[in-house]
């Protein structure tokens, strides 16, 4: 059994099946009474960490979330999936969402305290769609990074990870010396469900809560959100009766053929 430690980040976001609405005052999107879930890419990250532990490449999986009170539920789900213990960096409710730079800075202090060998994150969260946090954290720590991972293999002899990455035009493999940061793409694995019995058992697992203010990190947004608007609506389209009419319209009306 390896004693490697894996730190996994999990984020509570609006559920992937929800189509959000922009608030009338342009201040953001309306998240009242909207279903929230673990970010799908974070589920993949948890699953990958668990598989590495089950393959005896790691001894402990720690799940961390950064967010308001209810974000603790997301850590609980990670524990229900099988993570060993949880960390919740509590951010006051109602505060503007933390931006990737702040999240990466907070994760850096957690890494310095917990000293994991691998940090696994989703490649992006489906709310902000930023795709930055893992790369920023790796840059701050001076660790190697394997982003958009579709396969992760441990090379015990080299104490390194071979990460296959989904890049434009195909796949690429990099070897990363440990410690390292990995960010997950969609096809890395299929995450397990946190079953009810496992969720019950997970209630006994420990979640350590730390107030963000005690970390002495500047989390003020450096990117000011001026307003949020609806995307422009497309003009109403038409149904055509057959292929002849379609081609005719594309040729004469839309002028794209």
């Amino acid at each position: 059994m390896s004693s490697r430690k894996i730190l996994v980040g999990v984020k509570r976001v609006v559920d992937y099946a929800v189509k959000v609405r922009v608030k009338k005052d342009g201040s953001g999107v309306d998240l009242n009474n909207v279903k929230m879930s673990m970010n799908p890419f974070c589920e993949i990250a948890v699953e990958e960490a668990l598989r590495l532990r089950e393959a005896k490449h790691a001894g402990e999986v720690i799940a961390v979330t950064i967010g308001p009170k209810k974000a603790a539920e997301t850590v609980r789900v990670a524990l229900g999936m099988g993570a060993d213990r949880g960390l919740h960096i509590a951010v006051p409710n109602g505060d503007a969402e933390l931006q990737p730079l702040a999240v990466a800075s907070i994760l850096k202090t957690i890494v310095e305290k917990e000293k994991p060998d691998v940090v696994i994150l989703g490649k992006q969260s489906i709310d902000g769609d930023n795709n930055q946090t893992g790369q920023m954290l790796a840059g701050m720590l001076g660790w190697p990074q394997g982003t958009f991972a579709s396969q992760v293999e441990v090379d015990p002899a080299e104490n390194s990870l071979n990460v296959t990455r989904e890049v434009d035009g195909g796949l690429e493999t990099v070897a990363l010396g440990l410690p390292a940061v990995v960010t997950c793409d969609l096809r890395l694995n299929e995450p397990r469900f946190a079953t009810l019995p496992n969720m019950m058992k997970a209630k006994k697992k420990k979640i350590e809560t730390t107030d963000v203010s005690s970390l002495d990190i500047d989390v003020a947004p450096r990117i000011e959100i001026l307003h949020v608007s609806e995307p422009p609506k497309r003009a109403q389209g038409v149904f055509v009766n057959d292929v002849d009419e379609l081609v005719d319209k594309l040729h004469r009306e839309a002028n794209v053929l």
Binding site: P100, L101, N130, N131, Q132, Q135, M136, G139, F148, R165
Partner: peptide, 21 residues
């Protein structure tokens, strides 16, 4: 995938934020 991989890492090294996409 190149830009998304490299630029936020540079941002992390410099300690600055990035505007994506």
């Amino acid at each position: 995938t190149f830009g998304k991989n490299v630029l936020p890492r540079v941002a992390g090294v410099l300690g600055v934020s990035t505007v994506s996409d």
